[in-house]
């Protein structure tokens, strides 16, 4: 598994993209799927930058794992941050500190993630938000 630890700011998005490209370089997926994954990574990463440590910034850890043998490859990407408990799938309780002006931008982004990825799971563990997305690479696009 490849990991990137980075300060969650908008400016660092290009570094995240570079990391993602390197991690998925060796895997054999159609470019459409790779773009879908890139889109989901951007949406989730941007949520962390906007939401997790607001109004300050903090660290985000992104892990990319390509699993499986020759025929079936699956990409598992995890996002870890130590910000306020935030579940984009709303399993946890929402943040109470958020003022009316801090409107989360994520609604549509999370919708995209849910509809394009094969699995989306959230966990709050040891004071960390852990969001994991998975995409099968061999199936025909959903």
């Amino acid at each position: 598994m490849k990991e990137l630890k980075i300060e969650a700011t908008i400016e660092n998005l290009s570094k995240v993209f570079k990391f993602l490209q390197e991690s998925l370089d060796t895997c054999d997926a159609p470019s459409k799927v790779k773009r879908q994954i890139k889109l989901c990574v951007e949406e989730i990463y941007m949520n962390i930058t906007h939401y997790a440590y607001n109004p300050e910034t903090g660290m985000a850890k992104i892990g990319v794992d390509v699993i499986g043998g020759e025929n079936q490859e699956r990409v598992v990407i995890s996002f870890v941050d130590e910000g306020k408990p935030y579940d984009p799938l709303a399993k946890q309780d929402p943040d109470l500190e958020l003022s009316l002006d801090d409107r989360p931008i994520g609604g549509l982004g999370i919708y995209l993630v849910k509809t394009t990825m094969d699995s989306v799971a959230y966990e709050h563990k040891d004071g960390q938000n852990v969001l994991t997305i998975e995409k099968d690479l061999d199936k025909e696009n959903k």
Partner: peptide
């Protein structure tokens, strides 16, 4: 509603 549990129920 997207989501599970109490927040989804409230929403």
């Amino acid at each position: 509603v997207a989501g599970k549990g109490m927040p989804a129920a409230l929403f």
